[in-house]
Every structure is written in C-alpha cells, then in structure tokens.
Nucleic acid binder design. Structure first.
Length: 591
DNA sequence: GCCGTTTTCGGCCCGACTGTTTTCAGTCG
C-alpha cells in the first residue's frame, strides 16, 4: 500500500477535528487537530515516512496520541476513531457547519432535536418554519439559513465548479493595484497599504483588506465606493467602507488613527497562525497583542505603534517580511535575543536571466527576436528559448527536424543580439515511461533542456516518481519544469514523492524550477524551501508565452521564492551568464 | 491533544458581531 501523502494526512486530521468538534470535544483538542493538519501540510518531508521511523513527534504539535493515529493510518489506511465518528454524524452535518453563521454546536442541536442532517433538510425545515420553536433559534435564524443556502448555491454556480470562492493572486492584484493607486492619489489620504494574504503574496485570496490613514476618512471611503471597479457598497462610514467589485471580490477599507497604523496593519496582514503564535509568545512576557495595541501587564498601559517595525521591536523581534509570516519558524529566527536571524530574501532585481520561454515555434505569441528584445529591456544577460517538444500536440509540437531549424534560428538571433546570450533550448516532454521525446543526440546539441510532464497525470505516485527521476538521471536534462503540474484553484498536483525527487536532483546536480506563471507557482513555497535546503539550485522562470509575461510572471516566481525563505545565492539565475553557464549539468558532466 | 526559563497538570490569543436573551453562547476572522 502506498504511503498517504502529507496533504491526505492533513485532510484526515482536519476531518477528525471537525468530527470531534461536532462530538462536543473541548475546543483546544479540536484546535490541536487543526494545528497538526497545518503542520503536516507545511512539512517538507514525508510525514508517513517520519511515522514509520518513529520520529514523527519531532514535529511541533504532534504528540503521542496523534502518533498512534498516524501509525494506524500508515499501516491500515484508516483511523479507527474517524470511522466511529463518521458513523455517528452524517456527512451532510459537516456540510451544514460550513454554512456561514452555523457552527458545530447549533448544527448538532438541529440534528438531534429536529433530525436535520443535510443542507436540503435544513432548507425544508426553515421554509416550514419548524426551526423557530427550538430554544435559542428564532424566525431570524430561519431567514438567515435560507439566505446563506441561496448565496452558497448562487456562488457555486457563478464559479462554475471552483467551489472555494478564492481568486488566484494575479486576478486579485489586478483589482487591488488600481484601487491602491486611487486611494493613494486621493488628497485626504496619507498612508495606504494592502494587508491580508495578498500582501503576503499567498497563492490565492478570498478578499482584499486595505488599511489607510486620512485627514477625512469618510471622503476616502466615498472615493473607494465611487470607483468604476465597485459594483455595490455594503457599509460606509468614518472607519472606512466595505464594497464588492464587479468581479465578485469583497474589498474592506479600514481608515485608522496614524498612531495605530502599525498595529492594525500587522493584525490584518496575518497570517492567523503567525498572529496566534506571536500573541502566545507575548503573553509569556506579560504582553497582550491586539489590533489596537500592545497591553503591558506591568504598567497597565497600551502601547500604540505607528509602524509594524515598532510592533515587532516591542515584542523582541526583528522586522519580519510579510511573505514569511506563516508560523514556519520565522518568529524563532527573528528573536532579537538568540534567534538565528532571518534570511536576506531574493528580490526581482536579483534576476539576471530566464531559462523557460516560448515562441511561435510552439504555442508562444512572439518571435525569438521579440522575446530577446523584451529580455534585454529587463536587463537580462541570458534567455533560454524552450519551445514544446515533438509529442506536445494541440498543433504546438516541434518535430526533430523543426527543432534543428529552430536551433539555427536561435543561433542566428544570438549573433544579432550581442548584448544577450540566447540559449537554444527545449521544454521537452517526459513521457509516461520516463523517456524524452527527442533523440539523445539532438538533446545533446542544445544549450539548455528543461524537462516537464504534460500528459498522463494520473499514473500514481510510484510510477510518477520513477518517471520524473528517470528524466533527472538523463545527462542532457538541466532542469525540471513545473514539478507537480498543479494549477492553483483549478487542478491539484499529481501524486509524486517530492522528497525523493529532491534527493535525485541534489545527487545529479539537476536544477528545479519555480515556475512563475501565477496559476502555477510550482515548485510551491514549501517544496522550494526543502529543495534549497537539500542543496538543489533553484530557478525562477517565467514560462513566458509572450513578451509581457517575462516580467509579469517573474514577480510571482520571486514571491514564491521569498515565501520559501530563499536568498539570491540559492537561486541559480541570479548569477551572471559567466557564472551560470558552467553550472549547467551538461557542462559539468562534459568537464 | 499539546506542552513546560513560573507547570508532567493546568493552562492553552484577541476582539467583534449576532441573535436571543435579561447576561451570554456561538460564530467568525
């Protein structure tokens, strides 16, 4: 039996937490399961493997009891307590608790006292006005349930199957950036900053939070409500506004006093896990952190902070960049008394070349020369032209003969553009058996090869892992592209043992890419951090299919690298061409 | 259920809002 993946284990813990909550367990026990789910999801090594080695309690938040459950899950594929609780509570009951405004306590009473065990049953009972007779419920509750069900149904239909209600970050920023510009340009505003997961450069966001200071808060709120992007306004006052854009995204503007701006920005930037850990640590020092300030037990006074730097300094930390605020060790590292220190994170300005781009030879929209000009405009020293390979399909395939002609064209362009090194490359398909779809002699003639999986996504973990490692072992493969194949909010990663892939890449000197396409960002932050720690050189690539995405995708790749704690030195394409060229596997092997 | 520079037992972040209630539990972020 294949080991459960970290995300499968995390899902099992989340479900168990939900079930225990329905069962009336004390909240701290429920939180312990949710915390364990998060820790598992963020773990850079296989938690199933750690379990079999008897080392799983080394993970923070996993103790003896959870270890027992993990052993059962790894050895038998199931957790007995979960089976028992699933039999006790119908699946529809868990769905009911996901309705906004209905939690586990009240859902359970609806089930036990009225037999309501699904959203459908809840809707029927509300329409028949059978809920209002229950103690603690009223006519208002019935109205709210019906409205919540209608909203959930309408949202699901509007999204056409993407049930999460989240927006991939590039769509969110396409709304946030013009709104920030509008608010910053307004005569009454002083400071205007994005908060929330968008400021942390998360993969997707639910809504936007903007924190501001202004001489006339209401005027600023009215300016937001008057924007062309805004469809409707739910609330507007002296503290800000809550609006909804035409794309369906909620935007919350909070206008605050200047001397609290740092507290509020820190609070609403999150993440929740970062803030909880920050506040727990503060309590031990007699300090209580909230969005309003830091209450000191000793003096009884609340310290207000105009900047986030002051907030972190008062609590004993160096400033922590938003991308790191996920409770993945940043608080311990940032401690001013004995922390190991935070890394100096890579920036967009560090990038000196791009190793993954497409042209009209396959499915790109621009010619080699146009891509070269665009790369030069970004100040790049090198650009790899890596069109798709012989088996790609969709009319975008490049036959071996066509590739030979493409090599000539790229070399000619390279001569015509003396300021930039143009690499004749390919994004070659890794076939299901791990072989590549060009002859070895042809691959050896290229300057650069990035190998990717574009077919047969459901091979299963063992076969997929062998498939990718076979490509890594090929002497002409310099790097692996978008390792897990996921599309954010659209397609899950395929089953793959990333730990083994990282080992193989480290062993062979094969680079691993962070693909900067905003819906890929693959490697993700957790995988990229693990790979870099294992000594693998990381690439930040655009996978550009047109000139403008060379730059627009770079920022998502860099954001992912920063969330992975990466420094410029850990990313190969921050090097000059002279330094980068000999790092290619094909050059190293050739001596 | 986890965890320990006040603890191996007794704690475990902070505040707002809502609806149903006469002081608060449940829910959410």
């Amino acid at each position: 039996m294949a080991d459960p993946t970290n995300s499968e284990i995390a899902a099992a813990f989340d479900e168990l937490g939900d079930l225990y909550e329905l069962d009336g367990a004390i909240i701290h026990r429920v939180v312990a399961y949710r915390n364990a789910a998060k820790v598992t999801r963020d773990a850079s090594v296989s938690v199933a493997q750690l379990t079999r080695e008897g080392r799983v309690t080394e993970l923070p938040g996993i103790g003896a009891t959870l270890e027992t459950k993990l052993v059962a899950l790894v050895e038998t594929g199931a957790i007995p307590q979960a089976e028992r609780l699933r039999a006790k509570f119908p699946a529809g009951l868990l769905e009911m608790t996901r309705l906004p405004g209905l939690g586990p306590k009240r859902a359970r009473r609806l089930y036990e006292e009225l037999g309501i065990d699904s959203l459908e049953a809840l809707e029927t009972a509300a329409r028949q006005q059978r809920i209002r007779d229950l103690r603690g419920f009223g006519a208002r509750a019935e109205e709210n349930f019906l409205a919540a069900i209608a909203r959930a149904t309408a949202d699901a239909e509007a999204r056409g199957g993407n049930g999460s209600g989240r927006f991939v970050l590039d769509r969110a920023l396409a709304i946030a950036e013009p709104l920030l510009e509008l608010l910053r340009a307004h005569p009454t505003s002083h400071q205007v900053e994005l908060a929330g997961s968008a400021r942390r450069w998360g993969e997707s966001v639910k809504d936007l939070d903007i924190i501001a200071t202004a001489d006339d808060p209401r005027a600023l709120a009215e300016a937001l409500a008057a924007s062309d992007l805004v469809e409707s306004t739910a609330g507007l006052g002296d503290n800000g506004a809550r609006v909804r854009t035409h794309s369906g995204m909620g935007v919350d503007l909070k206008v605050v006093a200047p001397d609290q701006f740092g507290n509020v920005l820190q609070h609403f930037t999150g993440s929740k896990e970062h803030n909880v850990a920050l506040r727990e640590a503060a309590v031990k020092a007699g300090l209580h952190v909230s969005e309003y300030g830091i209450l000191d037990d000793a003096s009884g006074e609340t310290l207000r902070c105009a900047t986030e730097q002051e907030v972190y300094a008062k609590l004993g930390y160096a400033y922590i960049e938003p991308e790191l605020r996920e409770n993945r060790g940043e608080l311990q590292a940032a401690r001013l008394d004995g922390g190991s220190g935070l890394p100096e994170l890579i920036t967009e300005a560090d990038v000196k070349g791009d190793l993954h781009s497409h042209t009209t030879a396959s499915d790109g929209k621009n010619e080699i020369e146009q891509m070269a000009e665009a790369a030069q405009a970004l100040g790049y020293e090198y650009l790899a032209i890596t069109d798709h390979s012989a088996s790609h399909g969709f009319g975008d395939d490049v036959s071996p003969q066509q590739l030979e002609a493409q090599i000539e064209r790229i070399h000619a362009a390279n001569a015509a553009f003396p300021g930039i090194e143009l690499l004749a490359g390919s994004e070659v398909n890794i076939l299901p058996d791990g072989s590549l779809d060009y002859p070895d002699e042809l691959l050896a003639r290229l300057d650069w090869v990035i190998a990717s999986v574009h077919s047969s996504f459901s091979l299963g973990e063992a076969a997929m892992t062998e498939r990718v490692i076979a490509a890594i072992d090929h002497p002409s493969v310099d790097a692996i592209g978008h390792l897990t194949g996921r599309k954010i909010e659209a397609r899950p990663p395929y089953a793959l043992d990333v730990t083994r892939v990282i080992e193989a890449a480290a062993r062979t000197g094969t680079m691993l890419e962070i693909n900067g396409a905003p819906d890929r960002r693959d490697l993700n932050d957790v995988h990229a951090r693990a790979a870099a720690q294992a000594g693998v050189l990381i690439l930040v690539d655009s996978d550009a299919h047109r000139t403008r995405t060379l730059a627009s995708s770079r920022r998502y790749g860099i954001a992912t690298a920063r969330r992975a704690w990466l420094t410029a030195a850990q990313v190969a394409n921050t090097r000059s061409w002279k330094e980068f060229a000999p790092l290619r596997k094909r050059v190293r092997a050739g001596g």
